[in-house]
Amino acid sequence: MKQRVHWVLPVLLGVVLIAGGCSLFKGPQQKPAPSQPAPQRQAVQGNEPDISVYMHETGEKKTMKMEDYIAGVVAGEMKNDWPIEALATQAILARTFTVQAIETKGGVPSRGTQASTDVKEFQAYNAKEVNDNVKKAVEMTRGMIITYQGKPINSWFHSSAGGITATAKEGLDYKEAEPPYIQSVQSPDDLAPADIKNWTATFSKKEIMDALAKQGHKVNSLDSLEISQKGPSGRATVFLINKTVQVSGPEFRIGLGVSKLKSLLLDKVEFNGDNVIFTGKGYGHGVGVSQWGANKMAQEGKTAADIIGYYFKGVTIEKRWQ
């Protein structure tokens, strides 16, 4: 369950956090709209394509069928015993990401291939975890991608939204105009593990100062840390260090480690001696599909089209090959 990131400094809602610690105001909660399945249409452009893949583990380049590659991605990004419709959702997301990357930048030009198994530069991949569930999910969505006005979308996803998804600008520091298909919606993430639903992360002042220095924000002491701006979902978008140094929320999270500072949907930040304690919910940037939300919706009988239509507004699921 990996996330990809982009940086910019958005200017959104203001909320100040005193150095001694205080509870943060909640962002405006949006009532979930009725789940409308994404419409589907045939847009077949040919047969299933082959895809060239850089195998990160061995350094070799392989050519395989697109659907075989997608199966490995689904198994790498989601547990293979999850509901079929959740796995089908992940298959459509993975296929969309791959097609969009190939169409817009040729895949992974630095590797001379169309894809890579290195999650840091493309998508997770684990062919060993492909089972009958994954194969079924991939086959039932064969050739399907998500489009908006005929073009593949940015098919963002994350582990858990903590109850509400983020806009692209607040969750990813997205540099371009906010995609119209991305809207902040309530997300049914209550099946997520306890340490994802609610968590605390403790960092020493030195850890934070070192992380800031690596990002070009050198400070000689950490006297205060304030959240000066928040986005529509309530996520921190700008931190203010020592009343003078501004750091974007996503940049700050990356600097401290995205597996430890699990999200920017923070309930409380407080100083405790030489440590700073963050209390929050969810895991990931919060943009697009929540995997734990997809799991819950699938268990409630929703289809992949329902799930995609809920998290991405105004999109179409197109079948590009048979």
Rank of each mutant, 00 (worst) to 15 (best):
V269C: 09
G112Y: 07
Q183H: 11
F122P: 00
V276K: 02
Y125V: 02
A305P: 10
I92W: 07
W199Q: 10
K79Y: 13
M64G: 01
Q246Y: 14
A298F: 09
G27A: 10
G76V: 06
G59D: 09
Y283I: 00
S259A: 10
L222D: 07
Q246A: 15
I227G: 10
D189H: 05
W292C: 04
P188Y: 08
K262A: 08
K128S: 15
F25D: 12
Q229V: 09
I254E: 14
D223I: 08
Y181C: 07
S116V: 04
K175A: 14
S228H: 06
N133R: 13
R4C: 01
T316K: 10
Q100D: 13
A19G: 13
H6W: 04
Y310E: 01
E60P: 02
M140N: 12
V315E: 08
P179E: 07
G143R: 00
A304E: 12
S221L: 03
G143Q: 02
V276W: 08
C22G: 15
K2R: 01
L24E: 04
N295H: 15
D118E: 12
Q215H: 04
Y69H: 00
P250N: 11
Q29N: 09
A71N: 03
P232W: 09
D274G: 13
V289L: 04
Q45Y: 06
D173S: 12
Q3W: 00
I153G: 01
Y148Q: 06
N242V: 09
A201C: 11
M140S: 15
K135C: 01
Y311H: 02
L172R: 03
T147E: 15
S35M: 15
R41H: 12
Q322M: 03
M140W: 02
V11G: 14
E57N: 09
S221V: 02
A166S: 15
I102V: 15
D50M: 13
L93K: 02
S259L: 03
P193G: 06
M297K: 14
L266Q: 04
I102Y: 05
V74N: 05
S52H: 00
F157W: 02
H6K: 03
Q215M: 12
K136M: 11
R111S: 11
K26F: 10
D195V: 11
V245K: 11
H6R: 03
K31D: 13
Q229M: 14
W199G: 00
M78H: 01
E121P: 00
T200V: 09
W321C: 02
I182P: 06
E48Y: 01
S35V: 14
G171R: 06
V134A: 08
V130I: 11
L13D: 13
